[in-house]
């Protein structure tokens, strides 16, 4: 039995009359890290929103562990073990740091992650657990967002531009923690603007361009020129 964790089959997405994704096919295997790259507005966030159940899809367009999940509500998808660190962090401002993490654990899945494990990884959060999340620096907020997703003990975690708006040194810190996270047997999908960083941590890459997959391959096999062409739509 092939270990396909998630498969997208001709995934479309619409915002009203505007179509943001066109027939996207994708396959994610258990335990791998894939990166999704593409210019601003290419549809990366829309892709992740679709997987998490926040967009309207047909059942067969998204398959998880062999079952069609395209029509499930977002909370049902969450209970199946798909979590997201959303673009811009999007913490709950009226909740304390600890409450943000506890909300992440709402699905009640068992696994390696718990409040104390998250605090072990990001000790600063333990020190500030009673504070409101907005009192933290951008990097610390990102730690909360990551911790909140981990609290669900997901088997697939989606990261949407975790380095957006953070200082380079902070980004390095967060990327240093990434192997620890993914090392716990998790599968990850990473959306990133910083292409070289994305390629470093992932084994396969998909490039989106105006809502379509313009390139896919193993990170070792795709060249810079391939990526530039796929990214900017340079045609020859």
């Amino acid at each position: 039995m092939p270990d396909t964790l998630l498969a997208l089959n001709g995934l479309d997405a619409h915002y009203g009359d505007f179509q943001a994704l066109f027939g996207v096919d994708m396959e994610v295997h258990a335990g791998e890290v894939i990166s999704i790259i593409g210019a601003n507005g290419a549809g990366k966030t829309t892709l992740m929103r679709s997987i998490t159940g926040l967009m309207r899809n047909t059942a067969e367009q998204i398959n998880h562990l062999g079952q069609p999940i395209g029509r499930l509500r977002a909370d049902q998808v969450a209970h199946r073990g798909i979590a997201m660190v959303p673009e811009g962090r999007q913490l709950f401002p009226s909740l304390s740091i600890e409450e943000n993490l506890l909300v992440g654990g709402k699905v009640g899945r068992t696994g390696p992650w718990s409040l104390s494990k998250v605090y072990d990884m990001f000790p600063i959060l333990a020190e500030r657990k009673g504070q409101k999340s907005m009192s933290l620096s951008g990097g610390q907020q990102q730690m909360v967002a990551i911790g909140r997703a981990l609290m669900a003990n997901p088997d697939l975690i989606l990261f949407d531009e975790i380095s957006l708006g953070l200082a380079p040194v902070v980004i390095s810190d967060i990327y240093k923690a990434l192997p620890d996270i993914i090392g716990e047997g998790m599968t990850a999908m990473l959306v990133e603007q910083d292409i070289s960083r994305a390629l470093q941590v992932s084994s396969r890459v998909y490039c989106l361009q105006e809502g379509r997959v313009s390139l896919e391959g193993r990170t070792g096999d795709v060249s810079r020129d391939d990526i530039t062409a796929a990214y900017f739509g340079v045609t020859t």
């Binding site: 159940g53 926040l54 977002a74 969450a78 401002p93 009226s94 909300v103 709402k106």
Partner: peptide
Amino acid sequence: DNQDIAQIMGFN
């Protein structure tokens, strides 16, 4: 605070 994010955390 945020309906979308609360839903992906498992709240119906």
